[in-house]
Amino acid sequence: MTQRVVTLDLDGVTDKAGLMDRCARALDLPDWFGRNWDALADSLSDHTVWPEGAVGQGVLIVVRNWRPYAKARPDEWETAQEVFSEAVDRTPALSVTLALGGSS
């Protein structure tokens, strides 16, 4: 089976609140998602909030247009990368990739 691909487009994101909003939308997180680092880590690792059928297929999150946010908020971006990395380590069915191409 092919992994379910989810695009997390950070174009225009300038702060943590924007990142959390994009994550909530792209990953279709529940209304109770707390929009903080711990809640993001928990949601990424919690199969019950994954899209239907994704548990069997796995999920690949492709993060696009992340460089401006990383440059504007390097400390936040470092934390985001740690959250993604830890979630991948805990959840073998999850992969996160940083797209290196342009915004086209």
Rank of each mutant, 00 (worst) to 15 (best):
T97W: 12
P30Q: 06
W37V: 08
V88C: 00
V59L: 08
W32C: 03
V62Q: 09
A87T: 01
V6W: 05
W77N: 13
G102K: 02
L98M: 06
L100G: 12
D15M: 10
G12C: 01
N36A: 05
Q57D: 15
D21H: 05
W66R: 10
S43E: 08
A39I: 03
V88T: 05
L40H: 06
Q81G: 12
V55K: 14
G56K: 04
V55L: 08
R22Y: 09
P30F: 00
G53S: 06
A17V: 04
S103W: 03
P68W: 02
A70T: 11
V63M: 00
A54G: 01
R35S: 03
G18V: 02
S95G: 12
L19A: 12
D31F: 03
P51F: 05
L19I: 11
L94I: 08
D75T: 06
D31T: 12
Q57F: 09
L40N: 02
P68A: 12
T2E: 15
D21C: 03
G12D: 03
W32K: 06
P92R: 11
T91W: 01
L10V: 00
W50S: 06
A87N: 06
V83P: 08
T97S: 10
K16M: 15
P92T: 10
E82L: 08
G12H: 04
T91M: 07
R73Q: 09
W66L: 10
L60A: 13
E78C: 13
V6Y: 12
C23Q: 08
L27K: 14
R4C: 12
D31P: 12
T48P: 10
A54D: 02
L60N: 13
V13K: 04
V13S: 05
V96M: 05
E78D: 15
V83C: 09
L19K: 11
P74G: 15
L8P: 00
T14M: 07
Q3L: 08
Q57Y: 09
